[in-house]
Every structure is written in C-alpha cells, then in structure tokens.
Amino acid sequence: MVRAARHIENVRYAIRNVVAEASRLEAQGRRILYLNIGDPLKFDFRTPPHLIEAVHRAMKEGHNGYAPSAGIPAAREAIAREAARNGIPGITASDVVVTTGASEALELALTALLEPGERVLLPCPGYPLYGALMAKLSAQGVPYSLNEENGWSLDLEEIDALCTPGTRAILLCSPNNPTGAVLDRKVLEGLLEIARRRGLVVLSDEIYDKLLYDKAHVATASLATDVPIITFNGLSKAYVACGWRVGWLVFCNAHLMPELKSAVMRLADARLCSPAPQQYAIEPALEGPQDHIPEMMGRLRARRDLMVRRINAIPGLSVVEPAAAFYAMVRLQLPGVTSDEDFVLSLLREKGVLFVHGSGFGQKQGTQHFRVVFLPREDVLTTAFDRLETFVRERYSR
C-alpha cells in the first residue's frame, strides 16, 4: 500500500464532491437539476465568437508549440493596459504572468511566498481552492469572517487581531465566490492600512470584476502604491471560456517584492508555460467587443431577482442579494437541521436538485447554508425552487 502525504488528508472540493451522488442518481435514470457549478457554458451562455476566431487563427498560423513561460508578449501587454484602465499605476508587461487559469496563478504566488507553517488570512466563506493550497504547501490558512448581517463584508478589527508574526499575506476575493458580495472602497482602504502596518502581501482575486449588477468594483491595487499587491484574473468567467484555462497574475507595486516576483518567474519557467493558442484570445478579449457582458448581465439580473424572491419566500430560508457574479449563500434556519451537507444530499435524493453545502466553503460556527448558482434559465430555476419549497414544507413545516 502506497501512503499518500499526510498534509493532503483534509483537502476536499465540495463543489465537485457532491456531484458523485448526483451521477449515481443519474445512472439510475433520475433527471438532476444542477445548480452547483459556476460554469456558464453548462447553461445558455457561449464564448464570444471573436475569441474563438482568435484561437483558431493562432492554431492555423502555427502557434501550437511552447509559449514563453510568462506568456506571449501581446497578452502580457494587453493585461498591463487593462490594469491601467482599472486605475492601477505603473504596470508593465514584465509585471504580468499568464497562467493555466487563475487557480495556477494563485498557486504560483503562494508557493513562492510561503514557508511551511506560515499563515495566510483567508475569507470565510471562501473558495475551496484557497484552503486546498494551504494544505498542499503545509501552510496555515486562518479564516476571517465575512459578515452576513453586513452584506457579507469583512471586519477590519477581526483581521487585525488575527495577524501574528507568522502571518505573511491576506487573501481577498471581491467580487466574492460564494456570496456574490463586493467590498466597498472604504473597507479595502482599511484592509490595505492593516497590510501596510503589518507588512503583509495582499492577494486580490478579482476574477468576477466585470460581472456586476449595480455596485461598482474597485481594483484593490488602485488604492495603494506602498503595499505589495498581487491581483488575479482570467478569461473563465466574464469571457465565458472556463475550459481554456487562461488566467494571469499581476505584480502591483512590484518594486516592493523583487525577490517574490523573481521566485514566481522561476516557478513559471519550471512548468514551461500555460496553453499557447488560447493566449492569443487575451488581447481580443480585453480590448475587443464587450457586447456579451451587458447582455449576459441582463439575463443574470433577471435570474438573480427570481432567486432572491423565491428563496426569501420560503419559511426558514433567507439570502442576501448578491451584488455581482452568479452565486448566493442561502441561510438555513430550519428545525432539526444541524448539517447543511445532509440537507443538500437529502434534497438531491428526494427532489433531484443539486446545490453545494455551505460547510464546503466555511461558515460562521453554528450557522448552516447552501450555495446556489443561478446560471440556469428562469424556467429551470423556477422548477428547482418549486421543488426546494415543496421539500422544505413537507419536511420542516411546523
């Protein structure tokens, strides 16, 4: 028997783990309504044609070999110009690394930054990858609470109190997965002040920055020139190209972290490159037609509003209206529910509707949630919420 490394024992990915049960039920002939995964291409959204044409053209022109480790020059230059449009000063192509999705960007940055046992403050609830990377690196992920009663914002006093001499960074995700919240400028400025005083690196996951309803997104790195900030983004969400695995990181205020930047570049060299032909879509994505985004957000707004209306009408359930993206965390306050995972699995088995349990993302102790993805068409959402309401009333009506 070959033993696996102990530091991987607690790695779980709740978003995909629940799919195993759904697949088992489908094999028995059940039809499942999937409201669990944030892939727009599983529903009625499509990759913009001019991006597909750019990749097709790159392939036909022979760009099928290895690319430069940090990315092709045109892509890096386009990302630097995008940073300038977002109000981030002083970015050049040399500050950009193109990666295999934003997930690899996060992994490269954290691998270059952390020694075993060092600490990173992570949002709770938060994307499961963050904790998985901590386990992989034998580092310590320290959760900080997102406050549901305050629109899923963060508590600056809590964050400051969590900092210790072993804390190296704070990671934030705004707009947020799984809550759909967007942090206010004042909150970001307060967080940057803590990072400045504590000597922390700020890791800012901004993959949903264009998927906004009413609230404006503020690029974290636009607010400080004296704090080391690394931002993360990609084509997966706003540009509807999840499977291409095109992401990037940007060193903002790079003069404050030359050793870290050099270390990331060495790691990028060691893994050769991210997929080459798809990189030729980055410049057309960022600087070409953007028509699909308002069209996408118009559809998502209607679906969000439907979700909020239906969830808040079910006794024992409540949801904070998301300001961005296509996720929401639904609060469960039902008699006898002590495990949101059991709730999600029971709903799946009885009604064929799949959500993701909130405990898979982390949550305030004593609370129960599930994450809903409202990407499906309104008729599908209506059916799913009808089944959810019936399930709740049958099981939990007083």
Score class of each variant (00 low, 15 high):
L272A: 13
I282E: 05
L354W: 05
V246S: 11
R12P: 00
L146S: 06
D209V: 00
D226Y: 07
P165S: 05
A20V: 14
M296L: 13
A181Q: 14
L345Q: 11
S174M: 03
E287N: 13
M257A: 13
R46H: 14
S339R: 12
E287F: 14
R398W: 12
D305S: 06
L41W: 00
R81I: 09
L137E: 03
R46P: 00
R271I: 10
A102S: 15
K210V: 01
V218A: 01
S262M: 05
V330A: 10
G65L: 08
G90R: 12
A112Q: 04
D160V: 00
G362K: 05
Q278L: 03
I207Y: 05
P275R: 11
N177M: 07
V356Y: 02
V373W: 00
R303C: 06
V344C: 15
L348Y: 08
F232S: 03
S274I: 02
L235F: 07
R245N: 14
G131T: 12
S318R: 14
E53Q: 14
L306I: 09
N253I: 04
E350G: 05
C242S: 11
E115R: 14
G199D: 09
N253S: 14
S145C: 10
G199T: 08
P125D: 11
V250Y: 03
R85V: 09
P294L: 13
Q365V: 11
F45R: 01
K60M: 15
I88V: 15
A324N: 06
E148G: 02
G358T: 08
L306T: 06
R24F: 12
E378M: 12
T92E: 14
A80N: 04
L137A: 05
V96A: 05
P277W: 10
L256K: 03
P275H: 12
A195P: 01
A78V: 13
R310W: 06
A254N: 01
G71M: 05
G247I: 06
C173M: 12
V187D: 13
G298F: 02
V380C: 09
Y13A: 05
D95V: 03
I8T: 15
A241Y: 15
E118G: 04
K186N: 11
V308A: 07
C124K: 14
